[in-house]
Lab assay of single mutants.
Amino acid sequence: KVILLEDVKGLGKKGDVVEVKDGYARNFLIPQGLAVEATKGNLKEL
């Protein structure tokens, strides 16, 4: 699961917690600054 930092077409809006494949999160969303891993600490910051 990841928390979206920006609106991502076809996935969700900023602040949404979405389930995506590990590779998509690690190789695209997180490096592009579009999402962060949905850890307990990150979820509390919402």
Rank of each mutant, 00 (worst) to 15 (best):
K40M: 13
K1R: 12
V2P: 00
A38D: 07
G12D: 00
A25N: 05
L4F: 01
G23R: 06
A35E: 01
D7Q: 05
K13V: 08
V36S: 06
K9D: 09
D7G: 05
D7M: 06
E19Y: 11
V8F: 08
L29C: 03
V36Y: 05
K1S: 13
G12Q: 01
D7N: 10
E45T: 03
Q32K: 12
E45P: 03
D7F: 08
K40N: 13
E6W: 09
V36L: 09
L46S: 15
D22P: 11
A38P: 07
E45A: 05
E37V: 13
K13I: 11
F28T: 12
G15A: 03
E19W: 14
K9L: 13
A38K: 05
G41N: 14
L4A: 00
A35N: 00
N27L: 10
G15L: 05
L5G: 01
F28R: 06
A38G: 05
E19L: 13
K44T: 09
R26K: 13
V36A: 12
K44S: 10
I30P: 03
V18N: 01
E37Y: 15
L4T: 00
P31H: 14
F28A: 09
V17H: 06
N42S: 08
L4N: 00
G15T: 02
I3L: 10
Y24A: 04
G41E: 15
K14Y: 04
K21R: 11
K44F: 03
K40F: 14
E6Y: 11
L5W: 03
Q32S: 13
G23T: 12
V8Q: 03
L11M: 06
V8A: 02
R26Y: 11
F28E: 15
E19H: 12
K21M: 13
E6P: 00
K9F: 12
N42M: 08
D7V: 05
L43F: 06
G15K: 03
D22C: 10
I30H: 02
A35R: 00
E6C: 10
V36D: 04
K44P: 15
E6H: 14
L5F: 03
L29V: 01
G12F: 00
G12V: 00
A25L: 11
Q32E: 14
L34F: 08
G15R: 03
Q32T: 10
E45I: 06
G23P: 11
L11H: 03
T39M: 07
G33L: 06
V36N: 04
Y24R: 03
L4E: 00
L11K: 02
K14S: 07
F28H: 13
V2M: 09
K13A: 13
Y24P: 03
E19P: 09
K14L: 06
K14E: 04
K14H: 04
V20F: 03
K13Q: 12
K40G: 09
Y24Q: 04
R26M: 11
G33M: 07
L34G: 01
L43V: 06
T39R: 05
V8Y: 05
N27P: 00
L43I: 08
G41R: 14
E45S: 09
G15Q: 02
V8M: 09
L11T: 04
Y24S: 04
V8P: 00
E45W: 05
G10I: 03
G23E: 15
F28W: 09
A35P: 01
D22E: 12
L43G: 08
V17T: 08
L46I: 15
T39E: 06
V2S: 01
E6T: 15
V8E: 01
D16G: 04
K40L: 14
G10H: 09
K21Q: 12
G10K: 05
K21C: 13
G10Q: 05
G33Q: 07
L43D: 15
G10R: 06
T39A: 06
D16E: 11
E45L: 03
E19A: 11
P31S: 15
K14P: 03
V2G: 01
A25G: 11
D22I: 09
A35Q: 01
V20H: 01
R26W: 12
G23C: 14
Q32G: 10
K9Q: 15
G10A: 05
I30L: 07
K14I: 08
V2H: 04
L43K: 08
L43H: 06
L4I: 02
I3N: 02
K21I: 13
V17Q: 06
A35V: 04
I3A: 04
A35Y: 01
A25R: 03
I3R: 08
K9E: 12
I3W: 03
D7S: 07
E37P: 13
T39S: 09
Y24N: 03
K13Y: 09
V20Q: 02
L4S: 00
K21L: 14
V17M: 09
G23V: 10
P31V: 15
K40D: 15
K14D: 02
V2T: 02
L5Y: 03
K13T: 08
N27K: 10
V18C: 06
K1F: 10
G23D: 14
G15S: 04
K1Q: 13
V2R: 00
T39K: 06
D22R: 07
F28C: 09
K13R: 11
L5D: 01
T39Q: 07
G10Y: 09
I30W: 03
G33W: 03
G10M: 06
D16H: 06
A38Q: 07
E6K: 12
I3S: 03
K1W: 13
V2Y: 10
L43P: 04
L34C: 06
K14F: 04
V17W: 08
G33A: 05
G10P: 04
Q32L: 13
G10N: 12
N42Y: 03
A35K: 00
V20R: 01
A35G: 06
L43E: 15
K9H: 13
L34D: 02
T39F: 04
L29M: 02
D16Q: 13
P31A: 15
N27Y: 11
L5E: 02
K1L: 10
G10V: 03
Q32W: 08
I30R: 01
L46C: 15
K40W: 10
L43Q: 04
L43C: 15
N27F: 08
K44W: 03
I3C: 05
V18H: 02
V8R: 03
L46K: 15
V2I: 11
P31L: 14
E19V: 13
K1T: 11
L5M: 10
L46A: 15
G12H: 00
E37Q: 11
E37M: 12
A38F: 09
E6Q: 13
K13H: 14
A25M: 15
K40S: 11
E37C: 13
K13C: 12
L5K: 09
P31Q: 14
V2D: 00
I3K: 06
E37A: 13
P31E: 15
